[in-house]
Structures are given as structure tokens and as C-alpha cells.
Amino acid sequence: MTERPGHSRTRARLLCAAAVLLAAAVLALTGVRSTATTTQASSGAAAADPGDGREVFLRDCAWCHGTDGSGTHNGPALTDVGAEAADFYLRTGRMPLDSPDQDVRSGPPAYDDATISALVAYVGSLGNGPGIPALAAGDAAAGRKLFLENCAACHSSSGTGTIVSGGQPAPELWHTGKRQVAEAMRVGPGPMPPFDEKQLDPQQVDDIVAYVHQLGSPQDPGGAGLDQYGPIVEGAVALLVLLPCLVVVIRLLGRRAPERSSSESEEDR
């Protein structure tokens, strides 16, 4: 009769290891790229001065963009960017920056709605820049084609985002508001190229916005979406979760090597 001392202890240990492995994997996957979107600390408190955007501008923006918005060595002129750009940068939390060297990243907005509206109105009044785009209902099917041609190379066809040359991110698009998507297309913030009306007319912009919007709504019929990141994450799940689970299974099903005896070698040839 084969002795299997401590077999039930080993089995219990293995089952615990399997459970820990699974739990760790699930936790890791749900935050698989959590470090990708860094949140920005907001300098100015949400305490607003809703009546006059100019006061907030002078307090938080003028030190880089100039008291009259004509720019300094720290930041570009805002005289012709218009309400469109201001709305985009403020609502996506890209502005204001704590310092001129800080990376421009999306995050929670630094101000409340009313303050932003006031600021946007003020910046718009500085020159003749474009106003906030008006949106209409778009056709997601037409937008899909345009999105794949113009946007997927940087933002990924699933909208999960990736990196561009130099390491800056092209962010994921699932949490961006419809209007901000349209504004970004026109403004071309940071490394993103701009797309003006002659390249993408307002109907095409509406179509792309409709498509991006439905990307954001849950459309993972296959189960956990794994951030729709693609084969890198899927392969990691296969090699670090699926395969180890089956190794645990055969470890439980099979036996361990027999105890070694001191004179064990190839006798009996």
C-alpha cells in the first residue's frame, strides 16, 4: 500500500494557493492599467467665483497665459483658441496645471460647472476663436468607418488608448463626454492632430461622436472585457491564470515522486 504522508495537508495547501492565485489575478486584471490615467491634483479649490470668469482667470491662468491671454514663455496665447478649446481643456481636467512643466493629462475637472462656464465665456471673449461645437444625433455605423480610418491608430479601435511616439498617452475614450470628443477633434490637443471642418464636416463629427459614445457603454457580451486591450492582456490571463489553474488540477490529481533511497540509480541493466 502506498503511503502518502501529509497528503491531505498538501492538498489543502494547494487549494489555498489556487484560490489566492485566482483572487490575485482577478484583482490585478480589474486594475490592469490603473496607473495609465493619472489624476491631476487640482490647485485652485472648487470654491468658485461664478459671476466673473475673469477673476478666476487672473488668479489661476494668467501666470502662464498672460493677464490678457496673449501668452508668456510659460504658456501659449489664448486669444484665438476660442470657447471650444477652453471648454475642452477645463472639462477634461487638463487645465489648470500646477506648474508649467507638469504633463498635460486628463483627470477630474478642477472647477465646478458654473465656474467652468464662466471661464469658458471669458476665454471665448478674448478673441475670435471657435465657439463650442453644436452636436446633433449621429450615425454610429458611419462613424465607425471614420473612426477606424482617423482615430484607431492612436486611440485603438476599441477606444482603449495606447501610446504615441515619445511615450505620451493617447487616452482611452470611454469616459470622455460627447462634446469633449468633438472639441478634441477640432482642437487637436497636445500630440493629437487637429481635424477642421474641411476635413471632417459637422455631420461626420457627429457620426464619430455617436460611435465613440457607444464604445463607452458596456458592450462586452463575452464576459469581463479585460479593458479591450488585446492580446497582451489576454495572453497574460492565459499564461498566468488559465494554465496555472490546470497545473494545480494535475498536481491534485497526480502523485508526487516516490521518496528517494540512497542507492537509487540504474541497477539491473
Binding site: D220, G222, G223, Q228, E234
Partner: peptide, 13 residues
């Protein structure tokens, strides 16, 4: 196959 989505070809285009 039931719980973890893989290769969502509709999303890739």
C-alpha cells in the same frame, strides 16, 4: 469562454 472576453473582433474592426 463564458466569463472572460477574448478577441472581440467586432471592436477591432
Amino acid at each position: 469562454g463564458g466569463l472572460l472576453q477574448i478577441n472581440p473582433v467586432w471592436a477591432w474592426g
